[in-house]
């Protein structure tokens, strides 16, 4: 049983909706990432999605694009992300960590080398945005061989057939993209989300996280009533950006925001 499944089972038993923050590794600087991760756990994060910066983040809106650019400008890389997870694990053996990013850095490292390194430093799963199951068989096998979960996206455009195909490959949880758009998009249609989640639940027992478009306590609370997990990215990264010249203040500020979301979700 993976650390991710364990965590969701515990939460389900406690009737608690998971809170999953996304931050870009190395933003606003590499030294802030590990303290930031600990602060988010302290404020009620149940799982952390750590964004691997990429030069061409096609599925991301401007806020996360800029975070990637800041991180890359300071020399961040997939290798350094893995080092950060290793450092995080020294003080936190329980909170699951999922790496979220694009395929090319993993291609360059090699699927087996990546899976081995990720497992060794304490990563629990990978979400590769531009790798649908149709193209993802080899990476999936490499990750599975090391006991790592493969997290996949589902979207408002996913048909019933696609939902079944994606869920058959997925483990840990599935990530429902709540809007047609990029990360940080504005509008949220709760009725549409509800009907799609029903369709996904009919295809899988995996927990479902919902992300894209959750920006404050109110939207988190509304989504928390529908999903097993609420994923918040751009809203946190935007707050980090506002403090980019004062990185020492980032962990506390992100923690305060997450605590607000945690209260809205119920504890």
């Amino acid at each position: 049983m993976s650390r991710i499944s364990d965590r969701f089972q515990t939460l389900r038993g406690a009737g608690r909706t998971a809170l999953i923050p996304f931050v870009t590794a190395g933003d606003p600087d590499p030294g802030t990432t590990v303290p930031l991760m600990h602060a988010m756990v302290g404020a009620g994060a149940d799982l952390i999605e750590l964004g691997v910066p990429f030069s061409d983040p096609m599925a991301d809106g401007p806020v996360i694009q800029r975070a990637s650019e800041r991180a890359l400008a300071q020399g961040m890389s997939l290798h350094r992300c893995l080092d950060q997870v290793r450092a995080f694990r020294r003080d936190d053996a329980e909170t699951p960590v999922v790496l979220m990013g694009y395929l090319n850095p993993i291609e360059v490292m090699g699927y087996d080398s990546f899976a081995e390194a990720a497992a060794e430093v304490g990563v629990d799963g990978a979400l590769t945005v531009d790798l649908p199951p149709e193209e993802g068989h080899d990476l999936l096998e490499a990750l599975r061989g090391r006991g790592l979960d493969s997290i996949y996206l589902l979207a408002p455009t996913s048909t019933g057939e696609r939902i079944r195909r994606v869920c058959a490959a997925a483990s840990g949880f599935v990530y429902y993209v709540s809007v047609k758009g990029v990360t940080g998009a504005a509008h949220l249609d709760l009725d549409s989300v509800r009907s799609h989640l029903d369709a996904i639940r009919a295809a899988t027992d995996l927990p479902i996280g919902v992300g894209f478009g959750i920006k404050d306590a109110a939207t988190a609370a509304a989504m928390g009533r529908l999903a097993d997990a609420v994923i918040v990215g751009s809203a946190i990264v935007g707050r980090i950006e506002a403090l980019q010249d004062r990185p020492a203040e980032v962990p506390a500020a992100a923690g305060a925001f997450l605590a607000e979301l945690r209260r809205a979700l119920g504890t």
Partner: peptide, 12 residues
């Protein structure tokens, strides 16, 4: 070649 895009674009 292939199809390396985010899920939202697969059906379109």
């Amino acid at each position: 070649g292939g199809l390396f895009v985010a899920e939202t674009l697969m059906q379109p």
